[in-house]
């Protein structure tokens, strides 16, 4: 029960309360760039959910088994080389570079696979994949997961379940935000926007107001946590 309630809290937190775009302001460039039409925005959102899940899975695996202080694989390798050493090896300095490396290459691999075997799918969302690879939202999700593994006592460390929940619901939160934004922008086409604000200017102002609206979710997690007790 405690595990389940934690999962639910992580999910709601990632999707609504601490929405990546509207609370942390990461992933703004696709949010502004691809939110012109609702269908395109939805395609982008689905691609982000996919990529963020792959990235979260890989980064959790690498962090947990290789990079964190006292990770099993590293300890085993070091023990094999130097059996007499008692030191706890900490490779967490490699976190950032390994995340970027792993995300970029895995998305490349997935892109090739999709292009070969699912031509239609590649046409509709393959163009977004390289775009998302270099997106800060993806790296941000990895860093959130890292924060809950490195430097955390063993009992409170996040497992794969928590990490994947965070990633998938962060992606869903991104989709919600970008689809709402695209809907607003479609209506905005009919409005008399003052000349200097046309384009990106009004979009940033509108997303700011949208972020204010999402602030209304603040505190929902605390009440929910009380409810689950």
């Amino acid at each position: 029960m405690e595990y389940l309630s934690e999962i639910i809290l992580i999910a709601i937190g990632a999707a609504l309360i601490n929405n990546f775009v509207l609370h942390y302001f990461v992933g703004i460039c696709p949010f502004i760039g691809v939110s012109r039409r609702v269908d395109m925005a939805f395609g982008m959102g689905c691609a982000v959910i996919f990529v963020i899940s792959v990235a979260a899975f890989l980064s959790w695996t690498f962090t947990y088994f290789i990079l964190r202080p006292g990770a099993p694989v590293t300890t085993w390798v070091w023990g094999a080389i130097n059996p007499s050493s008692e030191a706890i090896v900490d490779l967490s300095i490699l976190n950032y570079i390994v995340y970027i490396f792993v995300i970029a290459s895995s998305v490349q691999l997935v892109e090739m696979y999709v292009r070969k075997f699912f031509g239609g799918l590649y046409k509709s969302f393959g163009v977004y994949l390289p775009l998302i690879t270099t997106n800060c939202a993806i790296l941000f999700a990895c860093l959130m997961i890292m924060k809950h593994i490195c430097g955390v006592p063993a009992g409170q460390m996040w497992g794969l379940g928590e990490a994947m929940t965070l990633a998938v619901f962060a992606g869903i939160g991104f989709t919600i935000a970008i689809v709402i934004m695209a809907g607003i922008r479609e209506e905005l086409d009919h409005c008399d926007v003052p000349g200097p604000l046309k384009g990106a200017g009004i979009t940033l102002i509108v997303s700011g107001i949208l972020a204010l609206a999402f602030m209304g979710f603040t505190g929902v997690d605390r009440s929910l946590a009380e409810l689950f007790k």
């Binding site: 590293t74 050493s85 090896v89 490779l91 570079i97 390994v98």
Partner: peptide, 11 residues
């Protein structure tokens, strides 16, 4: 040196 060698090896 342990960290450097292991980091280089990992990469």
């Amino acid at each position: 040196w342990v960290v450097v060698i292991l980091a280089a090896g990992t990469m």
